[in-house]
């Protein structure tokens, strides 16, 4: 029997049905400290959503709340319309990939993947077949009898993934799934993980503090700050239209011009902050301007850094255009008002 791959469920077709995961009004406190303050979130079936935020923002608490490891003081968690708030993790049918992978060290790869099926009382032969299929799916068929310790970090990560998806979970949770891998492997795994998630059509929620990772994998990104959701959007809209200066800065969506904002964008309300994308900030030589304090070659473009009274701002130029500027060159900065957005402070 093949691992039953649900037919591809495109996220958009499910918009009429109920969401796969619905979280409403979650309040969570640890010993008097509020970890989550009123979280509302809906994830469509087959959607891949990232929880992004700095450490301590509550993203892991939210993940653990959905998984059932912690119990919020208030709020509801629904999985495919089923209220799971009172259920123990083992009754929720959620697959989890842990940050440390949490592979059982005394079991082989196969036994690890079999574990969840055994818990469900699936007959041995059918379970073994499904486990082998899942191991094949992550490309580890040759390693089924190895112990986790005998595998590389990337391989362990795949085992953790196979173990989580083999139970055909209603929801896949990933806690910093790629955090322990080195950069090169991480980029490769991002692509693989995304492809696998689409192929299985499983609804997935993953926690990360790395905005690049969130951008490259997620259908939508939930940006969290101080136990609250700061913004939910697709990567593109998040980048193009952050709803606050903090989000803009956190996701690196451009320069924030403070104070002298009005000089660039006439008519901006006082005290507001202006977002100018890095590639839209223009630079021209001017003896009475400000000096360039840094210059970085980024491959396709060159970044120039200038120290303004409101902080460092960056301009991304093509290498050809940047050849006229070196550190110490005095410049003026301009931006087309059409490229600028006013953000609430």
């Amino acid at each position: 029997m093949l691992l039953r791959l649900p037919t591809m469920r495109a996220p958009e077709t499910t918009s009429t049905t109920q969401p796969s995961l619905a979280v409403a009004g979650i309040q969570l406190q640890y010993g008097g400290v509020a970890a989550l303050q009123g979280i509302d979130l809906e994830v469509a079936s087959g959607e891949f959503v990232a929880l992004l935020g700095p450490s301590g923002c509550g993203k892991t608490s939210l993940l653990r709340t959905i998984a059932g490891f912690v119990h919020p003081q208030q709020g509801a968690v629904r999985l495919n319309g089923r209220d799971v708030a009172g259920l123990a993790p083992r009754h929720r049918n959620i697959g989890i990939v842990f940050q440390s992978y949490a592979l059982f060290p005394h079991m082989s790869v196969l036994q690890n993947v079999l574990f969840g099926l055994e818990c469900r009382g699936i007959p041995k032969s059918a379970a073994t077949q499904r486990a082998r299929d899942a191991i094949g799916l992550v490309g580890l068929s040759a390693f089924a009898d190895r112990r986790p310790k005998q595998l590389s970090g990337g391989q362990q990560q795949r085992v953790a993934l196979a173990r989580a998806i083999v139970i055909e979970p209603d929801l896949l949770l990933l806690d910093e799934p790629l955090g322990a891998l080195d950069k090169q492997l991480r980029v490769q795994m991002q692509t693989e993980l995304k492809a696998l998630q689409r192929r299985l059509g499983v609804t997935a929620l993953f926690v990360t503090h790395d905005q690049e990772e969130a951008m490259s994998m997620a259908d939508r990104i939930v940006v969290m700050r101080d136990g609250k959701i700061a913004q939910i959007d697709t990567p593109e809209s998040l980048f193009a239209a952050p709803n606050s200066a903090w989000v803009c800065e956190f996701v690196g969506a451009g320069n924030l011009l403070r104070g002298d904002a009005a000089s660039i964008l006439p008519g901006a309300p006082p005290g507001s902050v202006v977002q100018v994308p890095f590639d839209k900030l223009r630079v021209s030589p001017a003896a009475n301007g400000m000096p360039i304090t840094g210059r970085r070659f980024l491959g396709a473009m060159v970044e120039l850094q200038m120290a303004t009274p409101g902080g460092i701002v960056c301009a991304h130029l093509s290498p050809a255009a940047a050849s006229a500027f070196t550190i110490g060159t005095h410049v003026h900065l301009h931006a087309d008002p059409a490229d600028c957005r006013v953000l609430p402070h």
């Binding site: 993790p89 083992r90 009754h91 059982f104």
Partner: peptide, 18 residues
């Protein structure tokens, strides 16, 4: 014993006894 192992087993559907 890593607490995450117990969480992992729990999420996979294992009872306390298991």
């Amino acid at each position: 014993i890593d607490a995450a192992l117990v969480d992992a087993a729990d999420s996979l559907g294992a009872s306390r006894a298991r």
